[in-house]
Each structure stands twice: as C-alpha cells, then as structure tokens.
C-alpha cells in the first residue's frame, strides 16, 4: 500500500510530575506519513515542541518492535490502540484517517502512578515477580537439559503464557485495575513445567499476596485484559491462577 500524508488532531495528557495535576492538551500533527508508527508520529510532534522551546511529551519506548513492553498509552480509550495483538509501537498511522481526532492518555491505575505525561511507574510488576515468580535453580550444576522430558503440547502452552511482555495494558484496560492476567501468566508458565512443581503452591500464594499489597484490584471476569493484550494471552491464565491458589489452599499453604 503506497504511503500518503494525513493530518491528525491530538488530545494528549500532559502532567509535569508525579504529584501534580494534569490536563488534556491539543496538538495538530501535520504531514504525517501513513507509513509512520504511532510513536514516530509522536516523535514528529515532539520535534516541533522542542524547536519551539516547549517541553516534549514524555513517553517510554525502547525496542519499537513489540517485544520489550516499554511503550504503551491509551489511544482513543483503548490500551495500545485499535489493533488487536499489537503494542503501541506496532500501531501504524495507516490505521487513522485524515482529520481524525485521537486522544492519548497514560495507563490509569493506582498501582501505576504517572511520573510525567504518558510515563508511568510499573515497578509493582517487578515486585510481583520477585515474590516467587521464579524457579529456585542455583547457577551451575544443572542436569542435562534433555533429562527433563516435557511434552510438546505442555511446552507450547507454557510458552503461550511466558510470552507476556509486562507492558501493563491488562491493568490499564481493567475497570478494577487488576493484575490477574499478568500474574496469572507467570504462575501458569511455571506451574505447567515440571521444574516449577516444587515451589508451585508457595509461589502462587506469595505472588497473589504481593499483587494485592501493591493495590491492584480484584478480577471480575470481564475479559478486557484479554481483549487488549498485545500478545493475545487468554483469560484462561486467570482461571489457572485461581485454580493454583485453591490447590495451595487445600494443601494448607495459604
């Protein structure tokens, strides 16, 4: 599809710092090639702001190919924008029409405080993983890799969950700001594998405990998280989380 040039009207959340009030500010992005990614469009807007001596819009981004999980904003009300199975950096301007108005906001969740503009603090996710989201295998002395047989279907299912990029869109989409899909994906990945079995019960109890301590909400099974997940991680991971938690409870781990 040959590229063309469009103009879009942006309404962007500007907030100078963590504990300061923010507001929506209007910008016009002119001469935007439809081959540009959404973030490249924001780069162009920022170039203009800098030339005018104004503060550029702060947003996180790194790999710009949909795998690092750094980027993410709520575009026209949808985390990562209108494309299913794609991150903000993978969204291209060909998805928009000339003259369209686009609202751009940060993830909104108590546990993800806004640091500036579209940049939020997602360190709560690291603390959830640090609460048992690992397998306690010391470095060195591991047995031969092929001595652990894992059926292909199990390995593939574990990989489906392990594909989570920790972007936080699931939390941003949820009306309760729940982190069940994120947490459930790691619990599922590790619970499916024989290597993860010994710590299975303690892991789910600790991770869920940390998730709640961080202030993430409860899950009410509406599935917004699944709908916006750029890696299409299914809500069945939450069912698995609940099942693992119940199993741990029956065994007296809680």
């Amino acid at each position: 599809m040959p590229a063309k040039t469009i103009t879009v009207n942006l309404k962007v959340w500007r907030q100078p710092a963590k504990d300061q009030p923010g507001r929506m500010v209007d910008y016009v992005a002119k001469d935007i090639s439809t081959d540009m990614s959404f973030l490249e469009m924001l780069d162009v807007v920022n170039e203009d702001l800098i030339r005018k001596g104004e503060d550029a819009i702060a947003f996180d981004s790194d790999c710009r190919e949909g795998i690092c999980g750094a980027c993410g904003c709520v575009i026209n009300g949808i985390p990562h924008g209108p494309d299913a199975g794609a991150t903000t950096c993978q969204l291209h301007m060909r998805r928009f029409t000339d003259g369209q108005t686009i609202t751009v906001e940060p993830w909104r969740a108590k546990s993800f405080p806004v640091l500036k503009d579209l940049t939020v603090d997602r360190s709560a996710f690291d603390r959830i993983i640090a609460s048992g989201g690992y397998i306690s295998a010391g470095i060195g002395g591991a047995q031969d890799a092929n001595s652990i047989l894992i059926p292909r279907s199990i390995a593939e299912e574990a990989m489906d969950s392990a594909a989570c990029i920790g972007c936080g869109a699931c939390v941003a989409a949820c009306k309760n700001a729940a982190a069940h899909l994120f947490t459930g994906a790691k619990i599922t990945h590790l619970a499916l594998l024989p290597q993860g079995a010994p710590e299975r019960a303690l892991r789910v109890v600790r991770m869920v405990g940390q998730m709640e301590a961080e202030g993430f909400g409860a899950c009410s099974n509406e599935g917004e998280c699944e709908a916006v997940c750029p890696k299409l991680i299914p809500i069945s991971n939450i069912a698995k989380l609940v099942r693992e938690y119940t199993r741990a409870w029956w065994r007296g781990t809680t």
Binding site: Y134, I135, A137, I139, G140, A142, Q143, D144, A145, I148, L149, I150, P151, R152, A155, E156, A158, M159, A162, H189, L190, L193, Q195, G196
Partner: peptide, 16 residues
C-alpha cells in the same frame, strides 16, 4: 542446562 532448569520454555519435539 541452566536455562532449562530455570524454566525457559524452549521448543520441544513430540517426544519431549
């Protein structure tokens, strides 16, 4: 060996 021990889900064949 180390990566498998820590749960890296490498691709597998049908025999595991």
């Amino acid at each position: 060996d180390q990566c498998v021990a820590t749960g890296v889900p490498f691709a597998r064949e049908y025999g595991g």
